[in-house]
Design a protein around this nucleic acid. Structure first.
Length: 278
DNA sequence: AGTGAGGCCTGAAAGC
DNA sequence: TGCTTTCAGGCCTCAC
């Protein structure tokens, strides 16, 4: 579920419980996720101080005082809740409970597509999960030229190019549709058909949309909840995602054209306006 | 090498 | 009402 803005929201909200705290206990009630939680996970993190919280792509990183970093991914349905003390009653999918001297984090992940592991902080760039990731949206190396070079000879639709975490990392299915809408580019265009001015728009709107989404606390389409139990608000600003048949906000045409279209690409839904996106 | 389909899991919502 | 099918903010692996 969570894309970059939602992970950023989660990171900001767990700061109070995690940053500069001492991890007293890591209770693992379920180990089977996208990767199994390592057997010695609790041993690695317990009694350590949290020295930094970071986000890389859709991963949250927790840097510990012993030179290890916890790598946490939320998959489609992962979420935290924050408590002052461990709740007496836990839910079916409350899989991991982190107790610090500042509070308790309960990790709930219905579908278990998330992932929790660790690696040496110094070796993050070699990590198999993090090492191959492309540029962060705000990396200054992300330019129209970079994007064009990555899209060269790509016959894949541009929408799938935006979802490719080895090009730009952090964009997910909602924001890919939104970015292409703002850039006025049809999602089914071949990657290598993108012109320089269009690549510039993609870079610009990637940053703008993700930034606005972070400011709104992310998007809640199905069940995203931040650690306070609240939904995000960016869904109210979405232009096309999930709105097939409706009129897009900037459209000059009428509904006789059928409104916003939904197509399937790479077995995921894409939404776009046939009138405005060329 | 690059691409598309299928799979991992569970539950909500839609369809019949 | 109840059963079946479809779909979901991600990502990996396997065939071609």
């Amino acid at each position: 579920m969570p894309e970059l803005p939602e992970v950023e929201t989660i990171k900001n909200m767990v700061k109070g419980v995690l940053l500069d705290s001492i991890i007293e206990k890591a209770e693992i009630r379920q180990r089977k996720f996208r990767e199994e939680i390592p057997q010695n996970f609790a041993q690695i993190v317990e009694k350590q101080k949290v020295v930094a919280l970071r986000r890389i792509a859709k991963y949250m990183l927790i840097d510990l005082s012993n030179g290890y970093t916890v790598i946490w991914h939320f998959g489609m349905s992962g979420k935290f809740r924050i408590f002052a003390a461990k709740p007496e009653v836990l839910g079916k999918h409350d899989h991991v409970i982190i107790t610090t001297d500042k509070g308790v984090l309960v990790y709930n992940d219905t579908r278990r597509f998330g992932l929790i592991t660790y690696c040496e902080t110094a070796k993050i760039s070699e990590n198999h999960l993090l090492g191959k990731l492309g540029l962060d949206p705000w990396d200054e190396k992300l330019t129209a030229e970079y994007l064009l070079a990555k899209l060269k000879n790509k016959k894949q639709p541009i929408k799938l190019g935006l979802l490719d975490q080895e090009i730009i990392c952090g964009i997910g299915n909602i924001y890919a549709s939104e970015i292409l809408y703002k850039a006025r580019i049809r999602p089914d265009r071949e990657g290598d058909s993108i012109k320089k001015t269009e690549a510039e728009k993609i870079v610009l709107y990637t940053r703008e949309i993700l930034q606005k989404a972070i400011e709104a606390g992310g998007s809640t389409i199905h069940d995203f909840k931040n650690p306070d139990g609240d939904t995000g608000y960016f869904q109210n600003q979405l232009c096309v995602y999930g709105k097939s048949g409706e009129r897009c906000p900037d459209c000059v045409c009428n509904l006789k054209t059928g409104g916003i279209k939904k197509i399937v690409q790479g077995s995921r839904s894409t939404f776009f306006c046939e009138t405005l996106q060329k």
